[in-house]
Amino acid sequence: MRVAIAGAGAVGRSIARELVRSGHHVMLLERNIEHVESDSIPQAEWVHADACELSLLEAANLETYDVVIAATGDDKANIVLSLLAKTEFGVGRVVARVNDPRNEWLFDESWGVDVAVSTPRMLASLVEEAVSVGDLVRLMTFRQGQANLVEVTLPDDTPLAGKPVRKLRLPRDAALVTILRGGRVITPQPDDPLEGGDELLFVAAVDVEDDLRAAINI
């Protein structure tokens, strides 16, 4: 997969290292020449360019990339790049970093954003997850489909303990994708039994979250 990342700060470099380690082709776009340090990630392609400049994106052949990640520390730049990537270059998947939660409402499909990642919101969600056993916690929003990644930790005395996954009567637009149990990551099968303390990860449409709560008795 070919991935273009705008912003070679701590966030952009961390993403690039993970993607390179997984065997993907990565291009890092950075407008500050002092941050262009190709020796730090030699496997990546480094380009000194302002990711908001159309001509520079054309020169970088952005249309040949499968994914664009707008990871700069400037929300305005991330929005502009997202829109250009989607409308001018036809990039299939655009992921944008939200630095200021007050700007999160802008990061949607009308600005070319498929997935908006808000670090403050994610940290808050993780805190909620740690203290909210038996409640539904939103971890991430998938803007294009208006769906959320949500987590529920089953209490130790859950009435679902011992029951197989197939007994969950989930609403139509909700799917159980993973069960986290201790150090295990379980791909749920119909006959797998549920246990108290299980962390259940669902992808669910926003308007069925109440039905999902009812289905898992919270």
Rank of each mutant, 00 (worst) to 15 (best):
R213Q: 09
V131C: 07
N61K: 14
W111H: 11
V152M: 04
V150G: 07
V165K: 06
T178S: 09
T158R: 08
A96K: 02
G112H: 03
E104M: 01
A6P: 08
R138L: 12
V137P: 01
F142N: 01
P193Q: 02
A215N: 09
I41W: 08
R93G: 04
V177S: 13
T72M: 15
W111D: 01
G145F: 05
A6H: 08
D207F: 10
P101S: 10
A124S: 09
V115H: 02
A161H: 09
G73Q: 15
S38D: 09
G112K: 02
I33E: 15
M140I: 06
T187A: 11
I79C: 00
L83Q: 13
E88V: 04
K163A: 08
A51G: 04
S14V: 00
L56D: 05
R121T: 12
G23I: 08
E129I: 00
L149P: 05
D157W: 15
K86Q: 13
A174K: 03
A161L: 08
T153S: 04
V36E: 04
N103F: 09
C52A: 02
R138T: 09
L201K: 01
L83R: 11
G23F: 14
I218L: 14
A10R: 15
V127H: 08
L81E: 12
A6T: 07
E104I: 10
E104L: 15
S14K: 04
N32M: 10
L168N: 13
R213C: 12
V26A: 00
L29Y: 02
R2M: 01
R138G: 10
Q146W: 03
K163L: 12
S22M: 05
L56E: 10
A204D: 01
R184L: 13
R17E: 09
N103C: 12
T187Y: 12
A130Q: 11
P164I: 12
T87W: 01
M140T: 06
E34H: 10
R21V: 00
A124Q: 05
G9W: 14
T64Y: 00
L160M: 12
V47S: 03
L62V: 13
D211P: 05
L54Q: 05
L201G: 01
L123K: 07
N32A: 15
L139D: 11
I216D: 03
N78T: 00
K86S: 14
D74M: 07
L29W: 05
V36P: 05
P171L: 10
V113I: 06
K167A: 15
E104W: 01
E109S: 08
